[in-house]
Write a protein that binds this DNA or RNA. Sequence first.
DNA 1: TGGATGGTTGGAACATTGTTCCATCCATGT
DNA 2: ACATGGATGGAACAATGTTCCAACCATCCA
Lengths: 231, 231
Amino acid sequence: MTAKIRAERRTDALSKARIVEAAIEILDKNGEDALTFRALAAHLETGSGAIYWHVADKDYLLAAATDHIVARVMADAARGSSPRDVIRAMANGLFDAIDGHPWVGGQLSRNPWQYAVLRLMEGIGSQVQALGVPERAQFNVVTALLSFMLGLAGQYAAGARLFPRDADRAEVRKAHLGAVAAKWMELDPAEHPFVRQVAKVLPEHDDREQFLAGIDLILAGMESIQKLGAP
Amino acid sequence: MTAKIRAERRTDALSKARIVEAAIEILDKNGEDALTFRALAAHLETGSGAIYWHVADKDYLLAAATDHIVARVMADAARGSSPRDVIRAMANGLFDAIDGHPWVGGQLSRNPWQYAVLRLMEGIGSQVQALGVPERAQFNVVTALLSFMLGLAGQYAAGARLFPRDADRAEVRKAHLGAVAAKWMELDPAEHPFVRQVAKVLPEHDDREQFLAGIDLILAGMESIQKLGAP
DNA sequence: TGGATGGTTGGAACATTGTTCCATCCATGT
DNA sequence: ACATGGATGGAACAATGTTCCAACCATCCA
């Protein structure tokens, strides 16, 4: 065993990058709650103390993991033609990322001061600038887009937290939404008419479409305000 | 001591309502992290086990506390003239609630399936219906408004988590935003032009104005889409 | 009226977590 | 060869949510 450890030392040297990578593996495979320093230490065949030499604390680790994912999304989305397309590509990419790594949604919405969020803000901001929005309105428009994204990210993450890692997520998800809808249908029709109406559509609705519809809505509002202010 | 307890029994009988009330007191006075079952038990002069007789677990307790606050907001906001005004009143009320009880923001954004969120959805939904939005578009519009609200709620809550309960919040907040802005200004101008531009406005900006601006933006988008589809 | 009953209570005990501490290791430079 | 200090592994600590259980006491029945 000691020999094995010795042999591994060279190739297995601990590092922030390797730790973040392992954390992402655990998060992806077993969900948000599964990431503990003990599980991480076991996965890396070391002790928890050693991890703290490279990583300040759990918050930092989660922020680093999240940034790792978001950075790729933003880089890919940057290759678009019009500013509108880039924004929609970023939204699409973010959706894919959260779909593939549900914990990213929770982490993004929980901690808005982390670097990953700053990345999103810069990416969205530069495109909003390119759209010719007057400077004093840019902040509000970007915040609206960003908050909407983070808000929905949190919601999807909460949904995913309920059934962590299943083979046929689509099926499980639909069953779950069906159960929620059924519960909503039991509410008093006089007190909750709208929710009951939504319940009918809930199990069939497409998350991605909903996400992009929200983005388009905000962009449309932005344009209508621009037209209003221009002439 | 035993006599005292006996005497108190009658007036002090434990109940879900009294527990929720005490939880809100602790959350308001000492912040999100301060609510533990031990602190709660001490505050109620009982043991943690007794609390579990009335309350399933901490999630349930937090959801109940949140709903207690949100219910009042929605009831107050319902007294408005036009649907637009009601929506803005709800947003304003929600902002006040989060401003006064920052933990509400965190709780709302963390758990979208709790009853408080359903309340918000019903409240917003009925007004959107009243605005004459076509039924198949209602779901997306309401989700957009709701997600934006929850997203920004989470952000404000995260901000408040950094300085839990201070006498002059306004001062502390400004100092904190100033520190964030200063950090942002240190970023590479080539890589983060937009963030650096925002940093200049950050410490002075008005949260409430920003919140309502987002609502108006989405409402404007909704109207422009309506006009587009109608004629 | 007195004893049984079962809804409540209080607090000890447990499992799990993030984090700290420290004895030990080993590649490097002298 | 040997001292040094960056890295490591794992034990120990403090805090938390939750469970468990002995004791309590108002109520109901005999």
